[in-house]
Structures are given as C-alpha cells and as structure tokens.
Design a protein around this nucleic acid. Structure first.
Lengths: 370, 370
DNA sequence: CAGCGTTAGGCAAACGATTGCATGACCCAA
DNA sequence: TTGGGTCATGCAATCGTTTGCCTAACGCTG
C-alpha cells in the first residue's frame, strides 16, 4: 500500500517545481534573446532566418546573434512561425491502413523524401470507408497541411492544397496521379505464363474498393486476348473483405477450387493474396508450382522468402512514394510548379520458384486439361 | 521593373492566377463570423468552444452562432489555437524504420488509440543511428509534440514531455516502458521445444541495437538452465546489419550451419529472421520441421501463411501500441496522471507447423546427436 | 432607492514569430 | 548646403485564437 503510493510519487518527473508533470520548461524565445543581445526581435529574427533584409546587417552583429542563439539554446517556435508564415511544413498522408505490405512500403518512400526537405507528415487511415476518407481529408486540411498524398485511396473532392495520389484512378482533375503501367504489368505476367505453356489461367481480382483493381483487370483482358487466350468466368474470383491479411486470398482460392474448372496457373492480385492462395492449394493437396503455378504482384519483402519463393510482378513502391513526395514538394515549393497529370512507372517481372511449365495433360483438380 | 519589384516584395500567394492548384481560398475566421453575427469574436469563440463562460450566454444567441458557423463553414485554425493554448494535439512517434513488421504493427495500435482522442502524430525513423535518435527527438519537441512514443528505440535523454517506450530497456527514469515478459516468452518457446524432445537448440540473437535483444537473451538463459540445458556458444549467431529484411536471419543461419555443430531446433529472434532461416535450411537441403524445428517471435501476419506455417511466440504488438498511446494521453490529459514505470504484457505461444519432435538419432548436418 | 448579484457580452492582452515601412546616421556628389 | 543613397536597426501590425477582466443593464431585496 505504502509502497505503491511511494512508487507513484517516485515516478513523477521531477522538475524543480513540485508538481510540474509534463510542463516543458519555459524555453527562450526571440524576445529573451533580443533583450540579452540588446537588439530588437526584428533584427534577431532576420539574422537567424537569413531574411533578405539581413544583408545589410554587419557580420559582427550576425556572429553575435548566432553565438547567443547557440549559447542560450534558442529554438524557434514552429507553431508561431506556421501561424505567421501560413505554412506548416507538414503534409498529410491518407492510406487504407497502417499494416504490413503495400501502403507501408510507399510510406517509407514518402518519409525518406519528406525528411530531406524538413517536412513532417501526418498519417491517417480510413479503412476503406468512404465517409472516413472525406473526414480525414477535412481533418488534415484543418491541420493546415500544405499538401496531400493519398495512397490507394479514392478521392472524391479536390482539396484546396496540392494533392498527389499513388495508384489512384478517376481522380478529380488537378491532382497528380502516380501509377503503374498496368497493361505492361499484366503483359509481363501473362506472357511469362504463356511462354511456360499455360493456357488455363485463373485470376484473383482485387477488392472493388482498391483503386488498382480495374486498371489491372483491363490490362489482363488486353494481355489475354492479345495472346488469343480466353478468360473463363469460373476462373476469376474476387477478393472479399477489407482485411489486410492473407485470408481473402485464401478464401478466393478455395472458391476457385470449388468451381471445379481446371486450371494450371493463378495470377493473384497481390503477393499477400498469392501467399494465401498457396496455402489453400497446399491444403487441397496441390503442389506449387508442380501442380499449379502462382504469380503474385507487388514484390513485398517477404515474397523472396516464401516457400516456394514467389514469382511476382514488382511494383517500385518505395520509389513511387518518393515520387509522390517530390511532386507535392515541387508544387508547394517556391517554384510552385504546376501539377502534372500523371507519372507512370514501370513494373518488372521477378521470376522465382512459384512458376514452372504445366505438367503435360494435367490441370488442377486432376482433371485432364480440356 | 518597378512592377516586378512590387510583386516580389509582396510575395503573397497569388489567388487570382489562372492555375489555381493548391491555393487555399481565404477561409472564414472567427472575425468574419463575429462581424456577420454582430457579436465580438470573444463571444463567438466562447460559444463555439463551449468555454465555461458560455454558460451565461442565452440559448438563442448560442443557436445563432452555431447556425452561422455551420452555414459559413467556419473551421477553426488549429495552428492559431495551438499557439494560444500551448497544446498541439500532436504526439511524436519514433521508430527504427517504416517497414513491414514489428514497428508497423505497434504503430497501427498507436494510431487507433490516438485517433479516438483526436490526436495526430508525427512519425520519424532513425534507422538505428544514435545521433539521428537525438536529432529526431529534438525535431519532434521543436514541433511542439505533447508526448513521445519511442518504439524499439533506445532513448538517451529524458524529454521534457511525457514519454513512453515500447520495448525499451534501461530507459531514463520518468518514462513509462511497455514491454513483453521476456522470461515467460523464452520459457514458452524453450519449454515447447524441450517437451518435443529437443536438446541441442540453436539461437539467433537480435542485433545489438535492438532494445529487446538483452532481455530476451536473459530469458533464454534462464529458461535453458532451468531445464538443465546448456547453450553451446557455437550454436548462437547474432543478426548483423540493420536491414529490416529477411537477409540477416538467412545469413545468421548459414553461419550456424557453417559451424558444423549439430542441433535439432532453432529459436530465432523474430519471425522475419525465422523465415530467412527456413530459406537457408532449405537451400542446405534440410526440411523444416522434419530435420530441424524453427520457432519464431512476434507472430507477424504472414507467420501463419508461411510454408511451413511458423510456430512462434506471439507478442501483442497492436495492443502494446494502444497501451502506449493510452499512457501518453493519460499523462498529458487533464487528469495529468503520473507516469507508471512499466507495463508488462504477456506473450503467447502459437504452435503451427514449423516444429515437431526431432528425428531419433539425427541432428542437423546428418551427424548423430551426441 | 441604495446596494448587490446575475446576465450578456465586449476589450484587449496574450501566444511567438515574420516583415513592411520608418528612422536616424553616415557618406558622397552637385 | 542640400539632396539622395546606402546602412543598421527598430516599431508595430499581423497571423487567428483564447481568456482575464471589465462594464452596463437588469432585477431583486431590505
């Protein structure tokens, strides 16, 4: 009893004042600094920020100012500065959720680039709920972000600040969209399977809310018909549910198997669902790639470490993040570059162990290929 | 000339320019609203914020104010508010890097909890560089964050705001530390292997910069000796390099194999390295779990979807993130609860497919077990 | 009717910076 | 001597809120 009470007091951070928990010590401001230097705050500010008017201030004075600032550990109050200059040095990032995989990889690119520019960012996740997207956008604007990056997030309204989307489709005009060349991506995958000899190919389509779904599907249709291949309706399953885990891919694959239409290869919507698919195949007693080949999408870190290592279409996610950040920065920077409409990046096929030629005369479910 | 000079001096954002991308329209402030209502800004502010002084303002007036605010789409300027109230409604999160896995899962918990409280957060990653940690801490404090959450980040100095660490060790006093019961975690894993019949167990230790490394190792030593098992120095490898990928685990395992000291099970530092290890085993022609059992740590989403599915010690990362956020919020909230020293959460063993009894008389490398 | 408590709301000072416009001193040319 | 130009610096407004203190009117009590 006494002990616990003691522990509690002991845990208080102890500033010199009795009960100051969490109260930051009054830090020196421009005012204090100016008084100490016997100069006006204006002058001090100009020197410290290197304002143009500082040119007329003699070097000796400048040095005094810098020295004092360093000595007194002056740190500018960014909130006050933001208010006055009307710029927050902050941008907002919207994404479906903070989780392993896609959005996170893009985010790491965004962060890298922003940090170089001394910009910070807020992250909000909307879990694919449309009304949340609206709300998030508002909240970020309320927070005075200077720009917005929306990752896999369908925007409805154009914001009042420069906005760039990563993998957005049908975006309001004026927003820059960074996207993958989905036609080429599909062509790479289909071509690979086709060359290996696959003809009956199954597909896992993305969730309807995912911005990439339609473009990718279109790419697949093009690629298939260009090679004279037909897409059998029974061989396409759609990811259901918003969970950012492997479950939807697993479930979709089970549906595919239940349809009992033979196929020798599967092209999944992303690596995460491909991994779910592989598990579903294993449980059905099928071997990847001997019985069925699997191609993923994205090339997340763990793809190379799957068993079998995943053949996949790599999306340069980190770079897309950097590009997105660069774009907003360019648009809000002093140059105020106008928004470009879109930036298309190229996919790359990474062949690993989950694909191989189909067994002669054999297709999934043990039925002879037609 | 004169004209351009003039334009330059008033380097105002130019609203009338044709291409309007990103120029925020002058939004209505308290001032405008007050004029429109023929009231003072003070009154309007009090009504809108529900300040105590608003009690003496008659309902009719209040309704008028609310109506006008809604109609004119008034949105308070949070920067100004922050400046005045000296609180930013923002907390700072420090982590090694934004990547798949550990930190991200914790982050998702943090975000969930913060969002409920209308707090936003800044994320900075320091890539394990000590001087970056210092710098990040400073930058966040400069940004007026009200609290700090440090994930797997060794803090050197105590900040002036409430701070909580997730998996921190030897933290400066006054910071709340949220950590796993590593002794129990190790006991769970070792006990599992021991019961299966394993005696020669190899280990992958964490990188030296990882806060969990020491505590976990201590737990392992305890658990091993409690069961009368010896840790052979040749059977412990350390993760090298900061890369948040599977490579270090892969490399460590190869070193283990190169040491040619037989073992029948491996306890890896985390799931990511366990996955790397499994790949190394496969390349060496060994099967998991028949030839060698593997236990991971963390239970990241993909653990259940590995092939074989990973037996692992689950760390409630999401919950730890929520706890961390709750703690800071409690400490900066109106109640100003004092910091508790630490919160210990419990691990859980998840048995899947990567472990099984050792083959009789057989250990890795084909040498007979001693 | 003096005095006081309540009600309804306004004034103006913060918060901590940035910046347009003065100002006063100095120098130099006309 | 006057006028104009550069130098070195200061004054004070501004960014959009919040909030301590003030006032003026009203109603009530003794």
């Amino acid at each position: 009893m006494a002990k616990s009470a003691k522990t509690a007091t002991r845990n208080l951070p102890r500033y010199s004042v009795p009960n100051l928990v969490g109260t930051p010590p009054r830090s020196v401001g421009l005012k204090t600094l100016a008084e100490h230097l016997k100069l006006s705050v204006a002058t001090v500010s100009r020197v410290l920020t290197g304002a143009p008017a500082a040119k007329s201030i003699p070097k000796v004075t400048q040095d005094r100012v810098f020295a004092a600032a360093a000595e007194m550990k002056y740190r500018p109050n960014v909130v006050a500065r933001s208010l006055r200059k009307q710029q927050s040095m902050t941008i907002g990032v919207m994404l479906p959720e903070v989780s392993e995989g896609y959005a996170t990889l893009v985010l790491s690119g965004v962060e890298e680039r922003l940090m170089e520019a001394d910009y910070f960012y807020f992250v909000v996740s909307h879990h694919h709920r449309a009304e949340m997207i609206e709300r998030c956008q508002h909240m970020l604007l309320d927070r005075a972000v200077e720009g917005l990056i929306a990752i896999d997030t369908p925007l409805i309204h154009r914001a009042t600040v420069p906005t760039v989307t990563v993998s957005g489709h049908h975006e309001p005009e004026g927003v820059t969209n960074i996207l993958l060349d989905h036609n080429r991506a599909a062509a790479l995958a289909i071509d690979h399977l086709h060359r290996l000899g696959h003809r009956e190919i199954a597909f896992i389509k993305g969730q309807e809310f995912s911005s990439d779904t339609d473009a990718r599907w279109e790419g697949i249709r093009l690629a298939m018909s260009a090679r004279g291949l037909r897409i059998a309706p029974q061989l396409v399953a759609r990811l259901e549910g918003a969970a950012p885990t492997h479950d939807p891919g697993y479930a979709a694959t089970r549906r595919l198997l239940a349809a009992r239409k033979p196929f020798t290869a599967l092209f999944a919507f992303n690596d995460v669902s491909a991994i779910g698919a592989i598990r579903a195949f294993r449980e059905a007693g099928l071997h990847v790639p001997e019985d069925v080949s699997v191609v993923g999408f994205d090339d997340v870190h763990s793809a190379a470490y799957q068993n079998p290592a995943l053949t996949t279409v790599r999306q340069p996610l980190h770079r897309m993040g950097m590009l997105a950040a660069s774009q907003v920065l360019d648009q809000i920077g002093p140059a105020r570059l106008p928004a470009v409409q879109q930036i298309v990046v190229s996919p790359e096929l990474v062949v690993r162990e989950s694909t191989c030629p189909p067994r002669a005369g054999y297709a999934v479910l043990g039925k002879p290929s037609r």
